[in-house]
């Protein structure tokens, strides 16, 4: 294809991506360097019968004007990145010096909003991803053995948790584990503890969010592995059987290696999606116990009437940095694979 034709074909999609994905990243970075204007303070003397007292008041009009003229705020450099709501160098240093045990240090760091979000996001990603891969493979093998009459319906049922809107899916689960919902109430009965509630306990909330994560993404890995199982060469399986391999052995030594490329594909997709975990935290109303990086940004932008662009920008940049670090190994591999294919 000629360069010219290629250009015209790719123009719409490329301009959409540059305008609404690449430029916003630049815009986010610029926003993160600025900080909101301080309010314009006027000091005036108010004199009453008992003498004069200086009073300070906010000149709303002047503040408004300043905001209008320079919506970005004033230049702040990289200071937002280091403040208490983000990397909090001062507070982390202080916690390191003052706490005498590792546990105390971790507790202190968990009180900082950014680290709280970061730690939950990472735990969520690295608990849910491997669980989903292992369970997905197990269920794919199981379904593959089913008589073909039940295969279709069971794939239909399996697809539902994955395709349902994340916000809606997590609400459905949340209503069931709520103190008054069927699972929540049964658990209270089972443990004979009427105060047992997901809403009131941090560990339970973490577990529930991760259970939701597994429930929601398991179908994706299951379907992918199921499709992969259809391509396992029959003759190799038979050869393994003749050589005396047990079912378990041929599973581990023939099928799993055959599926390895799929595992890396699924891992890539799951890492991307789990790292942006957001909707379940909104649905579960979990912010007191667990927040994620995405939720943290959402919360800053939601600040009624007065979005904290600088803070959201800084968190966004740190999140993007996290995504890039997470994906580097996979991206390098994709690049190598492509080069190998090209030559």
């Amino acid at each position: 294809m000629k360069h010219r034709t290629f250009f015209w074909f790719i123009l719409p999609t490329l301009s959409a991506m540059v305008l609404f994905i690449a430029l916003p990243i630049v815009s986010v970075f610029i926003q993160s360097l600025f900080i909101q204007h301080e309010q314009v303070i006027v000091v005036s003397e108010s004199c009453g019968p008992f003498g004069c007292t200086p009073t300070t008041s906010v000149d709303t009009e002047a503040t408004e004007r300043l905001r209008e003229e320079k919506p970005l705020g004033r230049f702040n450099g990289l200071a937002t990145y280091g403040n208490r709501s983000h990397l909090a160098f001062a507070e982390v240093g202080e916690a390191w010096r003052s706490s005498d045990s590792l546990g105390g240090f971790v507790d202190a760091v968990m009180d900082l909003p950014f680290y709280k979000a970061l730690i939950f996001t990472l735990s969520y990603t690295f608990v849910v991803t491997p669980l989903v891969i292992v369970l997905g493979l197990a269920i794919a093998v199981g379904v593959n053995k089913l008589p073909s009459l039940i295969k279709g319906p069971s794939i239909f049922v399996s697809l539902l948790p994955f395709l349902v809107t994340p916000l809606v899916g997590s609400l459905i689960l949340f209503w069931m584990v709520d103190g008054d919902g069927i699972i929540g109430a049964s658990l209270q009965l089972l443990f004979n503890d009427p105060s047992l509630s997901v809403k009131a306990s941090t560990p339970l909330m973490w577990i529930m969010l991760m259970v939701y994560g597994v429930w929601h993404t398991l179908p994706f890995s299951f379907i992918t592995f199921y499709a992969g199982l259809q391509t396992v060469p029959k003759d190799i399986l038979e050869a393994a059987q003749i050589d005396g391999a047990s079912k378990w052995q041929s599973m581990m030594l023939v099928v799993v290696p055959h599926l390895m490329p799929l595992v890396s594909f699924v891992t890539l997709m799951l890492l991307m999606d789990n790292f942006r975990v957001f909707e379940p935290i909104v649905s579960f109303n979990a912010q007191a116990h667990a927040t994620s990086l995405s939720w943290f940004i959402y919360n800053d932008l939601r600040e009624a009437g007065n979005p904290l662009y600088a803070s959201a920008g800084a968190t966004s940049m740190l999140t993007i940095l996290g995504v890039v670090i997470l994906l580097t190994p996979v991206l390098i591999r994709t690049w190598r694979d492509f080069n190998r294919k090209a030559h």
């Binding site: 609404f20 986010v28 942006r276 957001f278 995405s294 959201a312 995504v323």
Partner: peptide
Amino acid sequence: PHITLVSG
């Protein structure tokens, strides 16, 4: 993550 783009 979509929300990082939204903040831009």
